[in-house]
Design a binder for these strands. Structure first.
Lengths: 343, 343
DNA sequence: CTGAAAGCGCTAACAA
DNA sequence: TTGTTAGCGCTTTCAG
């Protein structure tokens, strides 16, 4: 492969200087139209390709933004990645991806990696393990770089956030079941102390309280957030003397596990109501279709991107507080809860 | 925020030169243990963070590898991303992501973006639109950078590839249905001329031929690769006088659509057999569970990563041919095809 | 084992 | 409107 062509090559061919070339290429200030065209032509002719690494070193901007999240295999996050990349790309930004796999240590390494890569900012969602220690996130801000936290946020982290109203999500799910006439409503969620799961549970409590139904401790299960967790939890619930007539799953996978356990007992929703969270792609299509609370992943990704651009483009001095962006959860009522309402 | 500390700061504090600091930090050649420790201590004390952009500019290596694929929202690709990032991270590489959204133009822009970012190599899977024009991929090789194509490969592209044996995948699916006693087997796939879909279809043909069954043109449908496509296709097939007793879906979403259409007619698999491709996460959990051909997404991602490392680490002179890596498709026989075998 | 110095490709004052 | 000139932070010969 031949030597790469640089702006020096263009300058030499045209008998001008590199600064002129640079200005022409970046369409900066007042460049005579003629030289601009000449430069562009020559650039094309010489197969010039700008070296962003070099320009980053001088300008201090990489136009790369770091995305740190638990796992691209979780569909919610995949959707956020999708939306982020799609939107930011149109503003000239690229996405550098780092997965924590729900590990705090990995999360810390991720922040370091992204910071060393000189990203222009970081958009992150916390790992399940992250509880007290959030010093690594503080470092991002110490370096003066925008940090946006989405979905899995943290109380002690003073950063712009984008999330849905999780308390409302839990409330909606529970209220929906109540409206459908279910009375003995159980809840299977994660044992991890992540804020959003706690909030959803609070919404569940509020809905019950409003309906004047006492919270039964045996109806609240804390296990793993996956099919297996839902399956095991549901089996346990079905053994109760006073078995629930509806079960809320911490996410759609948990709900799937619940349905599986019911199926083994010869029960098909909505005979026992089942609802999940996340609106995974399969939820709509399984039989019976699964009621769920949509988390607005795509919308959330887009809002993160917009927020990032807003922050990056304002002057650093204008350091006024940024209001958290709270999206509304969306109840998707489908067959799995569609019991005939009592009259 | 205070000025960032550089190796100059460390050098000054220690009364040594930057070259020594650089050597110590990179653990290079023969550095006296004492100065190495001193440098490391001081680096920590001053909160030093290496600037990869600067080092990339001199060394010519960014330790970033570009990943170009249709969409992170397609679970197969999300899994590949997951595996790629997970594996490459342990070798110090990061992932710069670009989605083509199945558009050729976007694919071209993606290659440019990644190249400008000076990635050390590109791992890509073609968009549905990419047919004749693959000049953008040629450019990657012209720049002397490794280019690995996975899953959606292209005949004219002389690059290392990682894929599964798609012909075999199509064959396996069809053979499985035949073994289960299905005779009138239809196939709903995409209208796009992508190699892997063509190959799967060829496997379908081979299996039928082996069984001495003539290919019925009315049984081969070419539409969209999604739930809707499967639904519409199946509805059309069910109208035939000689309706099929089994339908192969071009992917699991198509299969989902097929099941939906059957459901509307009061038919539940395996009464009519249904099988898909990809083993999407929901396939195992829907009722009835969906038979499918696993594409080994995680394995594929890992093989891509390994291949990349192998290529990048060998001397550029050792330019011997790289054999394509062909993974075996995996038949996952589940309820949707589990008809009692004829005796 | 360490220092001196050049330079990676580009941007951005400051001049002209 | 264009040129001159420093760097950005680091690596990497070449000397010593």
């Amino acid at each position: 492969m031949a030597k790469k062509t640089t702006i020096y090559d263009i300058a030499k061919e045209l008998n001008i200087t590199v600064s002129t070339v640079s200005r022409a290429l970046n369409n900066i200030s007042t460049i005579s139209e003629s030289t601009r065209e000449a430069v562009l032509d020559m650039a094309k002719k010489l197969n010039y390709r700008p070296n962003k690494v070099a320009s980053s070193l001088t300008s201090g901007k990489t136009y790369i933004i770091g995305v740190l999240l638990p796992s691209a295999q979780i569909q919610f996050f995949a959707s956020v990645i999708h939306a982020l990349e799609k939107y930011l790309k149109s503003f000239g930004y690229s996405i550098l991806l780092y997965q924590t796999n729900e590990s705090l240590e990995s999360e810390k390494n991720g922040i370091s990696t992204l910071l060393e890569a000189q990203v222009d900012g970081i958009i992150a969602s916390l790992s399940l393990e992250t509880e007290q220690d959030i010093s690594h996130f503080e470092k991002v801000k110490e370096e003066g770089k925008p940090l946006i936290i989405f979905d899995r946020t943290h109380d002690d982290l003073q950063s712009p956030t984008v999330k849905i109203n999780d308390e409302q999500a839990g409330y909606l799910a529970t209220k929906h079941l109540l409206d459908k006439g279910y009375q003995r409503i159980a809840y299977i969620t994660t044992k991890h102390k992540i804020k959003i799961f706690r909030e959803r549970f609070e919404g569940y409590q509020r809905a019950l309280q409003e309906a004047g139904i006492a919270l039964k401790p045996s109806y609240a299960l804390f296990g793993e957030l996956n099919v297996e967790g839902g399956y095991e939890g549901a089996k346990q619930l079905l053994k109760l003397k006073d078995a629930p007539d509806a079960i809320i799953g911490g996410d759609d996978y948990v709900a799937l596990g619940i349905i599986k356990a019911l199926h083994e007992k010869g029960i098909t929703p909505p005979a026992v109501g089942v609802i999940g969270f996340a609106n995974q792609n399969f939820s709509e299509h399984i039989i019976p279709s699964l009621s769920t609370i949509d988390q607005q992943a795509l919308q959330m990704g887009k809002e993160c991107a917009k927020l990032f651009l807003k922050i990056i483009e304002r002057s650093p001095s204008a350091d006024k507080e940024i209001d958290p962006i709270i999206l509304d959860p969306l109840l998707l009522a489908r067959e799995s809860t569609n019991r005939k309402t009592r009259s």
